[in-house]
Write a protein that binds this DNA or RNA. Structure first.
Lengths: 146, 146
DNA sequence: TGGGATTAGTTGCATAACTAACAATATGCC
DNA sequence: GGCATATTGTTAGTTATGCAACTAATCCCA
């Protein structure tokens, strides 16, 4: 059924491109306007460390859906910015445990507030039930491909 | 209302990260398995040229939601691969019109088929009405931020 | 007609992504 | 104990993105 395929082709562009990059760009812009000088990718790493400090790089890979080289470099850059510190695990010396610095801890409230405001901008005029349904669909997509 | 904010924070991770990158990665993998040696970003440019050949770089920016430098470099790489040709417009010599080569035209059927199959994998178990609603929500998000 | 503003595209710089290959450490089995 | 295997993280190479500054061509309007 070619009609259905065309519809799905259009959806593809929505899922892969427009909405997610639009939100990412807006969040980055809002960070900048508020004087927060980190990238959204760096923020996404901090986000998981705020929930639980001292994760290993592998755990950060799983949490952020990035591969190992990506996390290596993000942690490199976060270390340069003095926002995290690598600490080699005593139990397993292959592992680095990543700990927040005081500076990074102080970023949490402000940046979470900016992220929530950005999401409010993005979801203006969308009902809560529609948001939930959309969330379920995207989760299903993720589960189908994982 | 902190509960609502938490929910939206979770949604943020879905929209920006998981589903869209999962589809993109799967599509890239499927291209590779089928011996198609282009990136999905390059494919997205060809996709719009298949619909209408001879677009300007600015029109490609609008169609693919990328900025001008991104399109400049994608077209650079597509030219190196001999998939497109820049032709300076006679009406307005600032503009480059981008034309498909025969090689690129031959890629259309196969890659569109792979993209549709990938989308079928991704959307397995999701009803058409839910897909449409999700599509509307993502469009609304895009419109809110554009 | 002339000169400022706009538009199309390019280049430079920094960050980030994926793949593949690699080093170091840990595990497990004989 | 020792060697194959698996796991954790790093490095190298290519591609892509965003921003800012730049060139060239066109437009506009006084």
């Amino acid at each position: 059924m070619p009609n259905n395929q065309f519809k799905r082709g259009e959806l593809y562009s929505f899922i892969t491109g427009k909405a997610s990059t639009a939100i990412a760009r807006r969040l980055q812009k809002n960070f900048k306007q508020q004087g927060v000088d980190i990238t959204i990718e760096q923020w996404s790493v901090l986000y998981h460390l705020w929930k639980q400090d001292g994760l290993s790089q592998q755990e950060l890979c799983n949490a952020t859906f990035r591969d190992k080289p990506s996390i290596t470099r993000l942690v490199d850059n976060l270390e340069k910015l003095k926002l995290v510190k690598r600490v080699s695990s005593k139990d397993d010396r292959r592992m680095n445990l990543i700990f927040l610095t005081e500076t990074a801890r102080r970023l949490q409230d402000n940046t979470m507030e900016i992220a929530n405001q950005t999401l409010n901008e993005a979801l203006e005029g969308v009902s809560v039930t529609d948001i939930d349904l959309c969330k379920e669909v995207l989760q299903q997509v993720y589960d189908n491909l994982k």
